[in-house]
């Protein structure tokens, strides 16, 4: 070293070195282990998010036992509507068929959620009916078969 280093500079560099190394040591203990594994986040949280319990089983699970209903449904306009759309979450029932039965939506309001007349619904998207005029003293399923709506009961 043939140039002159002022003593203040030496002390300053030493102070910086102490603070930076203290920071790095503390940081090493505070930052979680999987942090930075895939990006600026805790990599373990992907696994934790994936552990959330499932409430809806998916249509395939229904068909393992209810294949006859599926065959009926495939023949009519409700073929693209999945079971849990109307019947609600089915995971618990598919695990244990006897304990938890699913809701059977039989009221005019539940059919009306999709089929009631609304100017915002496109006619190509869904068949609409004016529920205030159409057989108001009956339930929909008195005449319509719910899985085969155009196969009338009477």
């Amino acid at each position: 070293m043939n140039f002159f280093i002022p003593p203040q500079l030496k002390r300053l560099v030493l102070a910086f070195a102490i603070f930076i190394s203290a920071f790095l040591i503390i940081r090493h203990f505070l930052v979680p282990e999987t942090f930075g594994q895939y990006g600026f986040y805790r990599g373990a949280s992907l696994e934790e998010t994936a552990q959330t319990p499932v409430m809806y089983a998916g249509q395939e699970a229904c068909f393992t036992c209810h294949q006859d209903i599926e065959d009926l449904k495939q023949q009519d306009v409700h073929s693209e509507v999945r079971c849990e759309t109307c019947h609600g979450p089915g995971q618990k029932h598919s695990e244990n068929g006897d304990t938890t039965l699913l809701e059977n939506p039989v009221s005019r309001e539940s059919c009306g959620m999709c089929h009631s007349k609304n100017v915002a619904k496109k006619k190509e998207a869904i068949f609409q009916i004016n529920l205030k005029e159409h057989y108001i003293d009956k339930k929909c399923i008195d005449c319509h078969n719910h899985h085969q709506p155009w196969v009338m009961k009477e």
């Binding site: 992907l46 998010t49 994936a50 552990q51 959330t52 319990p53 499932v54 409430m55 809806y56 998916g58 249509q59 693209e80 509507v81 999945r82 849990e84 759309t85 999709c114 998207a125 869904i126």
Partner: peptide, 18 residues
């Protein structure tokens, strides 16, 4: 995400009737 990891569809896609 928890359903995608099990090979299921997201629920909103599953129940959409149209």
């Amino acid at each position: 995400y928890h359903r995608l990891k099990k090979g299921l569809d997201p629920v909103c896609m599953e129940v959409c009737p149209t």
